[in-house]
Design a protein around this nucleic acid. Structure first.
Length: 273
DNA sequence: TTCCAGGTGCATA
DNA sequence: TATGCACATGGA
């Protein structure tokens, strides 16, 4: 990796794949424009060019995106360990270049409430409108709206951007988050933090696990959605109790559960279907 | 037309 | 504690 401070990051393709990382379902605030990918996180933006052997990540916040893309974690070791468990070996080959992003906590809470019982294309569209309508304009991009920018929105405002029945959860959660100390929450144990997140409106076990994994970098969780349930029934055993599936998988993969989950999710959704 | 999507909240037993 | 249903919307 080469870095020109606050200008660009040049990263080799050997152990990182941008499309896999973006399309493995962990993030919604990105899109393709001409030949480049635009990746947005909170009020930060990166314009990413793909070359033969490298990606060039153009951004004025290089430190932020080095952390965001988790470029300093050794994934080779993680993949070696997980690869010994079937069907992880196949899933890792398929999604070899996935990194688990370190996303903004507030944005991730709002995003995954919208994700519930929804499809990725539509989720991305709702979040894009949320930025365009209520975020601060920075250059040609829009930041993700802050808590204070969202706190005056009505249910109808959220319905108008396509949030559907989740609009009432969003109005409620914005109120709840005014007394939710995000900085303090980072020091809680995963179990304690998970309880606090599930108390938020529109956040159940699955959304809480996504927030823990994609924003708090807690890897001892295993979000179980419709795709993971299908995969579990295909490779492990017949079960439709998602809490039970979660517990079984966390027991199996321990502190690497979060990584295992992303390889399996991407493999199931993009390859097996 | 019907089914489904990175589920959650709430009522009921 | 466990089960069943309603909930908006748009793509396939």
């Amino acid at each position: 990796m080469q870095v020109e401070k606050n200008k660009k990051i040049i990263i080799e393709k050997t152990n990182f794949n941008l499309v896999q990382t973006l399309e493995c379902g962990q993030v919604f605030s990105y899109y393709k424009e001409n030949e480049n990918y635009i990746v947005q996180s909170a009020d930060k933006v990166a314009v990413i060019e793909e070359k033969d052997n490298v990606y060039i990540i153009n951004t004025t916040d290089t430190d932020y995106f080095i952390n965001y893309f988790d470029f300093n974690t050794d994934y080779i070791k993680i993949k070696q360990e997980l690869g010994q468990i079937s069907p992880l070996n196949e899933a890792i080959k398929f999604g070899y270049g996935i990194k688990i992003l370190k996303q903004d906590i507030f944005e991730t809470i709002i995003s995954f409430i919208i994700s519930a019982n929804n499809n990725i294309k539509r989720i991305k569209n709702i979040l894009f409108k949320l930025r365009q309508n209520y975020g601060k304009k920075i250059g040609e991009f829009y930041a993700f709206p802050t808590l204070s920018e969202l706190k005056n929105l009505s249910k109808g405002d959220f319905v108008n951007i396509g949030a559907g029945y989740r609009a009432k959860y969003l109005v409620e959660v914005v109120k709840q988050l005014e007394s939710f100390d995000i900085e303090k929450s980072k020091s809680l144990s995963t179990v304690e933090l998970r309880k606090n997140l599930i108390n938020l409106s529109g956040v159940g076990p699955k959304v809480a696990d996504c927030i823990l994994l994609f924003a708090y970098s807690r890897f001892d969780v295993f979000p179980v959605d419709t795709w993971i349930e299908k995969l579990y029934n295909q490779f492990f055993e017949q079960c439709n109790n998602r809490e039970k599936i979660r517990d079984e998988l966390v027991n199996k993969f321990g502190l690497l559960s979060g990584y295992a989950q992303q390889y399996l999710f991407f493999y199931k959704r993009s390859y097996l279907k």
